[in-house]
């Protein structure tokens, strides 16, 4: 068996463009999913009963439906239903955000409920309002506590962007497929991309863990 990595060295710009889009899609998804997930998580904790039921249904549904299915539905079925066509990138961003936000909301909820009730009592005894309690005391501690889980979600998000290839978003996975098909060198091309993903994802998870170890004490009441 002979390996020929020249398709990669010759076309590294092509892969790099894919990698750039993977990074952009990951970061945009994570930013939007964090905001949406925070809102959903807080809504489930402090919102009125009907809202909790609705949000709970949304979250559990996202836990039940594969991200591929959400992605394909958003890109192909949503336009038929509404008449609004989304370009692949935006469809992927919307679908991934809706999916990932559900998981963010779950860790927000877990983080908030894990803060000791004594902290609430201490803040109330000072005379804080409910909003001050959540903003000043509960959320800062919850955010520290959910860092490791947030790191895993970030890693899942980066991995899930590869699924956007099925709706032809030209991210790293898509570019890899194209290059492999054109050069007839699937082993070299796919293996290279696997290594690229590993080189991105491994430091991300390790980095988040390292940050967490430095700040963990700020969340331990």
């Amino acid at each position: 068996m002979e390996f020929d990595f020249s398709p990669i060295t010759d076309n590294w710009r092509f892969l790099l463009r894919g990698l750039e889009l993977t990074v952009v899609l990951s970061l945009a998804t994570m930013a939007l999913a964090t905001l949406l997930g925070l809102a959903v998580g807080l809504g489930r904790l402090y919102g009125p009963k009907w809202l909790r039921v609705v949000l709970g249904f949304y979250v559990d549904s996202m836990r039940a439906i594969p991200v591929l299915v959400v992605l394909v539905w958003t890109f192909f079925a949503f336009p038929i239903l509404t008449g609004v066509t989304l370009p692949p990138f935006w469809a992927a961003l919307a679908a991934l955000t809706i999916h990932i936000a559900a998981f963010v909301s779950e860790i927000v909820r877990a983080g908030v409920t894990s803060v000791r009730p004594g902290q609430t009592r201490a803040a109330l005894a000072l005379g804080m309002s409910g909003a001050q309690l959540v903003r000043k005391i509960i959320l800062p501690q919850a955010i520290v506590r959910i860092l490791p889980a947030y790191g895993s979600i970030l890693s899942v998000t980066i991995k899930d962007t590869a699924i956007a290839t099925v709706i032809a978003v030209p991210e790293l996975m898509r570019q890899t497929e194209t290059l492999a098909a054109q050069t007839f060198r699937p082993i070299e091309v796919y293996t290279t991309t696997m290594i690229i993903f590993f080189l991105i994802l491994f430091p991300v998870t390790r980095g988040v863990d390292a940050i967490y170890r430095r700040v963990a004490h700020l969340g331990q009441s």
Partner: peptide, 15 residues
């Protein structure tokens, strides 16, 4: 706001 309270487990804000 007019009463101070001190708890068994301190409950300082860790952050």
């Amino acid at each position: 706001q007019r009463m101070g309270m001190v708890f068994q487990n301190f409950e300082l804000f860790p952050h």
